[in-house]
């Protein structure tokens, strides 16, 4: 008896767990959103959306966009997420080609330009995210701060540049992609771009693990300059009063199309459609623009309804034309090559 009892236990435990997994929450429909957009923005949307849809319980899981893709991939057979909100367009394109997304046509679909959405309606651009040059505004004045990408290579910033680990960051991959895409466009290959990145590597003091450490190191003057995206820095300023400011590169900057999609086989597809409808709808777009400095991807937003600072930024931005198809194909190989042959080779 006793012996059987002893083996039975783990089996029972496993079964009990499986059973527990099937039980639900408080009667509302849980809507699981995978998103890198951060606690503040997500909380704000959760509250507004739940106010409008009291039968839905928004459960956001905060993680990097690469992690989201990874997750959605490994959960393909048993999707856990309903909505994937926030990632560069090429990541959505990759996911769409792997059959990870579900088509949907929100009422505002037509207001999104064709190049910012999937032709089959698998994903839609919500915001355009400009990449910028950020600096510690306590030590560096606005006049001194680099105005364009090449300024970052100025000898006076040597050893003062901090870079978020480019492999793990969608933002950094886009900037790397822009540098290399420019090189291919102008010279036919990546050599010039890699040379530029090698010079940047020489300027770089440290590749930083995550954005948090990046902000902290920047604020604590462990480095003075970094490359990052505009909305995140705006959010940081609003939240923490850290002395960090940014300039918009004059020669042009990649505008990353940030999208939203419904996960293929989403357990709560109806609620997911409501959520996507809300996020891309006028209320959602204005909420993101006014409180979180998100540039709308939709073209039908009256400029005077946007906050002044956002309109100022819009005026500054020179969109860099990028060959997204080439990037999607080539960038992983380029990143790998950079990682193996450039990173840390120039004595950073």
């Amino acid at each position: 008896m006793g012996r059987r009892f002893a083996v039975g236990r783990p089996l029972i435990a496993v079964l009990a767990l499986a059973a527990a997994a099937c039980t639900g929450g408080d009667g509302r429909t849980p809507l699981v959103v995978y998103s890198p957009h951060g606690r503040e923005l997500l909380t704000a949307f959760e509250q507004r959306f739940e106010a409008a849809h009291p039968d839905v319980d928004v459960q956001w899981v905060d993680m990097g966009s690469q992690e989201v893709l990874d997750r959605v991939r490994s959960e393909k057979a048993n999707p856990q997420a309903d909505v994937w909100w926030g990632a560069p367009a090429e990541m959505f394109t990759a996911a769409a080609s792997e059959g990870l997304l579900e088509p949907f046509a929100p009422t505002w679909a037509a207001a999104v330009p064709a190049e910012m959405k999937d032709p089959r309606g698998l994903w839609y651009g919500t915001y355009e995210t400009p990449e910028v040059i950020a600096y510690n505004s306590k030590v560096v004045t606005a006049a001194e701060a680099p105005k364009d990408w090449d300024d970052v290579l100025d000898p006076k910033w040597k050893g003062k540049v901090l870079i978020r680990d480019p492999l793990a960051s969608g933002t950094m991959r886009t900037i790397w992609g822009m540098i290399l895409d420019r090189s291919v466009r102008e010279t036919g290959d990546t050599a010039q771009g890699m040379a530029w990145l090698r010079r940047l590597d020489a300027q770089t003091k440290e590749y930083v693990l995550n954005p948090t450490l990046l902000y902290q190191k920047l604020a604590r003057e462990e480095g003075l300059i970094t490359l990052w995206d505009m909305p995140d820095i705006e959010a940081l300023q609003a939240k923490t009063k850290l002395p960090i400011d940014y300039t918009i590169p004059t020669s042009g900057t990649p505008l990353v199309v940030d999208g939203i999609a419904i996960v293929n086989g989403a357990p709560h597809a109806a609620a997911a459609r409501q959520f996507v409808e809300y996020v891309g709808g006028m209320k959602g777009i204005l909420l993101a623009a006014r409180e979180f400095m998100r540039l709308p991807a939709r073209t039908d937003i009256p400029p005077d309804s946007l906050p002044e600072r956002l309109r100022w930024a819009q005026a500054q931005i020179r969109p860099e034309p990028l060959d997204w198809a080439r990037l999607q194909q080539q960038l992983p190989g380029w990143m790998r090559w950079w990682d193996e042959h450039v990173r840390g080779r120039s004595g950073g």
């Binding site: 435990a13 767990l17 499986a18 997994a21 959960e75 048993n78």
Partner: peptide, 13 residues
């Protein structure tokens, strides 16, 4: 093989 990814069982497992 069972679908445990995404369930409450996978982490304790």
């Amino acid at each position: 093989r069972f679908v445990l990814v995404g369930t409450a069982a996978i982490l304790p497992l």
